[in-house]
Computed example of a mutant assay.
Amino acid sequence: MKLINENPWQYLSVKLPMLGAFFMLIVLILQWALDYKIIDGDTAAIIASTVIPALTWFGRKIAQPNLHNVNQFVTVTAGHSNVDPGAVNGKFKEAELVTKFRNAVAHYLKEAGIAIKTDGVGSDNQNLNTAIKLIKGSDVAVEFHMNAATNKAAYGIETIALPKDKKLAQDLSKVVAKAFNSKLRGDNGWIDQSQSARGKLGFISNGGLIVELGFISNETELKTFNEKYWLAARDVSDILISYVK
């Protein structure tokens, strides 16, 4: 038996009958402690068999839009594409590395029962226009990239996002930096798009976030990525799961 990964206490159909049962228990305890009959056994049985089920039905009928969004999904995409390798270090291509990371994050999200949209499956990595189209309607959209610099010692993790997503950007950067034993760049891991050297980015302007998973040009950071990207992907998926829940 596999349990659903959710908190049942968020539903009124659970809260209301449990609250009714709790109050009835308090009454029974009080009448026992005070030796004074507040309700008799027949009345308690009627409450248990009718009132509590009625509370369950009533709780189920009350609309909770934040819990019943049938279009809820997370978008995860990989930077660049099958025809654009991005930054390159020897045999390693940015587009291929971030595609593996995207797949790992998608795996953990699906395992947790989260609906997802991606810009490809397996080694497929579609172009930016395709990725941007997937953002619409999603609860959160994240694309993965790797930095590169002429200074081979440059390293660190950052997430580029609009100010409204600052906290989420910092949370994503923190777990990646911890997994890769790296440092946070920018404002505790967040880079405001307006402060980015890349200028205005289409994925971010349409509501997404871009996580830079270290520097492909740094041999140590590249080695760590290849060794620990599954660990970082698991932690990133945990942040995204918490965000949508």
Rank of each mutant, 00 (worst) to 15 (best):
I191G: 00
A104K: 09
A149Y: 05
L162S: 14
N103C: 08
A112S: 12
I157G: 06
K133Y: 14
L109W: 09
N103S: 07
A153D: 14
I160A: 07
D187W: 00
L97D: 10
N147H: 09
T159F: 03
S182H: 14
F101R: 05
I116E: 05
L172Y: 05
H145I: 03
K164H: 01
H107T: 07
V105M: 07
A95C: 11
I157S: 06
F101G: 07
V98L: 04
D187Y: 03
K166E: 14
G113W: 09
Y108Q: 07
E111N: 06
D139M: 11
T159A: 15
K174P: 04
K117A: 08
I116C: 11
G113V: 10
E143F: 11
G189Y: 06
A169K: 01
A95D: 13
D192Y: 03
I132F: 11
I160R: 04
V121Q: 08
N181Q: 15
F144T: 09
I135F: 13
N181A: 13
D119V: 14
K167M: 11
G186C: 00
L134E: 10
A179H: 08
G186E: 00
F180H: 12
F144K: 13
K133N: 15
L168F: 05
A153W: 10
A95K: 07
A95R: 03
W190G: 00
A148P: 00
N129P: 03
I191E: 03
V140N: 05
T118S: 06
S138L: 13
R185F: 02
I114P: 03
N181W: 06
G156T: 09
Q126I: 09
A131I: 08
Q193E: 15
L109H: 06
L97W: 12
K133G: 13
L134A: 10
E94P: 00
D171T: 11
Q193V: 09
A161K: 09
N103M: 10
A95G: 00
K117W: 05
I191C: 02
L162H: 10
A112P: 00
K110A: 08
T150F: 10
E96V: 08
H145W: 04
N129Q: 08
Q170W: 11
Y108M: 04
L128I: 15
I114H: 03
S123M: 11
E143Q: 10
I135C: 13
N181H: 13
Q195V: 02
G156N: 12
K110L: 08
K117T: 04
Y108C: 04
F180P: 03
K167C: 01
E96G: 00
T118P: 00
N125D: 15
A131M: 12
S194N: 12
N181Y: 10
G137P: 15
W190P: 00
Y108V: 04
L168A: 02
V175N: 11
Y108W: 10
T159K: 01
F144N: 08
E158C: 01
I157A: 11
M146Q: 15
T118W: 06
K152E: 02
S194L: 09
R185A: 05
I160C: 12
K117G: 01
S123D: 15
F180C: 04
G186P: 05
T118R: 03
N151E: 07
G186D: 04
E94R: 01
I160V: 14
L97F: 11
K117P: 00
G113F: 09
K183I: 13
T99M: 06
Q170T: 01
A153F: 14
L162T: 12
A161R: 05
T159D: 10
I135P: 06
